[in-house]
Design a protein around this nucleic acid. Structure first.
Lengths: 349, 349
DNA sequence: CGTTAGCACTCATGATTGACGAGTGCTAAC
DNA sequence: GTTAGCACTCGTCAATCATGAGTGCTAACG
């Protein structure tokens, strides 16, 4: 499949998608032939359109309007018709300027990147930090607060920081906490959190742990500390750009979209999916069964350091997104962030 | 000022504001007398309305529409007419259920509180964490990453965590960093960041620092670590509730509002202002010269622990907000958070 | 046989109109 | 001081209509 269309059909489909992307109005046969200086008559175009509609690439909102692309139409356009251009060095520079603003922290780098993606694409930028369980352990710290509460601070190898409050069963002095801290920092260095969890679980079962009080406490504590994985991992920036799109003039749709942005959880699922694949991925319309973001397409790419994929970023926009413009932006940004995380932060010396 | 209206005028003004808040439509004389079973004629009401308009409490969108309250009108209503009711214990329970969800971290507590405020008020909830410079120092930690980068992690007494990347001039081993860490943790405990900054600046000038290499490095490092204050301090939740309000049907207004929510910086100014005052504060309309949030009113209250005010929270909604409902919610939530920060986290043992 | 011109038909859009109703201000009477 | 009455204003809504872009179909053309 993919190339089951003849040349003329392909040309016409491309023209329709192009026109619809830039105007947002259903495109009709005559206006189209004129705009593209085609040397075939509107009637011919109409025949072809009827075929394309039959095949599921186009749809007509109502009898006497023009045609609009279906999800399948967009998909074909993106996969087989679209030719990407390189970014100019000026554009590359703009991306770098946006992201390279003095790195205050990894979190703010990711957030800035989201803003950059939004600003450059004029849609919404989305950046997902690594899933916690798959980050690599770098440092753990326990700080006693009042009321038997202890604040646990983790630092991952890529420089992400997470913190969590836990409650102690038994009162430990700051001194004891420090011992435990040292023990854990030595024992766990370089493992992923997932591995750490497994190791902790395994050792807790072992006999010898029962006799080493310090170790027992350490295990107990880290077990609690790692128990749940409940962080804010997604930054969405520039959602307000959707407000201008006529595609979402319906308040109901818009509301659904913004609620999805606020909840994020479903988006995390979607982005997790794309985490494994390499290169730019494109989710079109509700092809993805996430009807919260109906009418939206998502262009993502993962970023990585020497240890592998560490996160995903991309742009979320309407189905009729300027793919040819956005895809190179996402691609380049992902590479840039990979580079930044590599040289600046992520790599262990 | 405040009571320069006679009883009838006050009754009528109150009725108008009430009606407008619940309907959103300009309220006319006849409909109003009927709705409130008033024993005066519409004509009389009209006379009073004309007076109120003259005095600046009301305005008419056009000749033959009803009246709507001006900012001044709302202000009078809130200050002199509104009578607050206590929350029922069921409502209190709902707030507590929302906020008291297992405290994973201070940040997530604050964010949950924002969601609670939004959900309970059906407007947008807003929560501001303490200004960094005024938080009380609890713990600092340096973690070496690659490329001469060091990650600094601060913990405040209330359990807030912040992190920042800094670059070292000279290469320090993790061992040296630990020494510095210990030194700083002992020397700075219990001071506000502002005081810490001042102390560091003062000591850097002193002769003796020049001879103690460790101390010099420590000062140097902490100077860098504290240099800038660039964090995400504001959580806004439930902004999408504005999408349903007819008051913001105009896309331009809506966009301006959402951009303000995204940028946050102006809101921080506004909330900082209200930080000092105690009790519930109400900002109405553009009385506050923040025209980004034109048409919005803000109800805030600060929360505090034993050391004093540590943050601000509230609800942001349209001018015609259900003040009588929202004010008690904000008040109660602020007290609740104060209590949680007090007993759970903030108080040093 | 593919292509095209011609034609009848559909349908969204936008402007125009008129009835309606809710509202106002003013004046005069109570 | 209060109210009834009245003329007037204006936004809203529904109906109507012209317009124009679009379609599908058929028949003619090269």
């Amino acid at each position: 499949m993919g190339n089951d269309l003849n040349d003329r059909s392909r040309t016409i489909l491309e023209a329709i998608v192009d026109d619809y992307i830039s105007s947002g109005d259903p495109v009709g046969s005559r206006a189209m032939t004129r705009r593209h200086n085609m040397d075939i008559s509107p009637a011919t175009v109409r025949n072809v359109m009827a075929d394309l509609e039959e095949m599921g690439y186009l749809a007509s909102p109502h009898t006497s309007a023009g045609r609009i692309p279906t999800d399948k139409g967009y998909r074909y356009y993106v996969d087989s018709l679209l030719q990407l251009r390189e970014l100019t060095s000026r554009e590359k520079q703009r991306i770098e300027d946006h992201c390279n603003v003095e790195k205050k922290s990894v979190e703010s780098l990711l957030q800035e990147t989201g803003k950059a993606l939004s600003s450059l694409s004029s849609y919404a930028g989305i950046v997902m930090a690594p899933r916690f369980t798959s980050t690599v352990f770098r440092h753990i710290e326990f700080v006693r607060l009042s009321g038997g509460k202890v604040l646990v601070v983790f630092v991952s190898q890529s420089g992400l920081v997470q913190n969590k409050l836990i409650e102690l069963d038994e009162d430990l002095s700051q001194r004891e906490l420090e011992k435990i801290t040292n023990y854990l920092n030595n024992a766990l260095s370089g493992m992923t959190i997932q591995e750490v969890k497994e190791k902790v679980a395994a050792e807790m079962k072992q006999e010898k742990a029962l006799y080493d009080e310090l170790m027992q406490r350490a295990l107990n504590l880290s077990d609690k500390a790692l128990a749940e994985d409940v962080e804010e991992r997604v930054y969405i920036e520039g959602a307000s750009s959707f407000l201008e799109l006529p595609d979402f003039a319906d308040v109901g749709k818009m509301k659904k979209l913004f609620l999805a942005f606020e909840q994020k959880s479903r988006l995390v699922d979607l982005l997790d999916k794309s985490q494994e694949a390499s290169g730019v991925q494109i989710f079109i319309g509700s092809a993805n069964s996430y009807n919260e973001i109906e009418g939206c397409s998502l262009i993502t790419s993962s970023y990585r350091n020497v240890h592998g994929t560490i996160g995903t970023l991309g742009v979320i926009g309407p189905n009729r997104m300027k793919y040819s413009k956005v895809i190179p932006i996402v691609d380049y940004t992902a590479r840039l962030i990979s580079r930044l995380m590599e040289t600046g932060l992520g790599k262990e010396k």
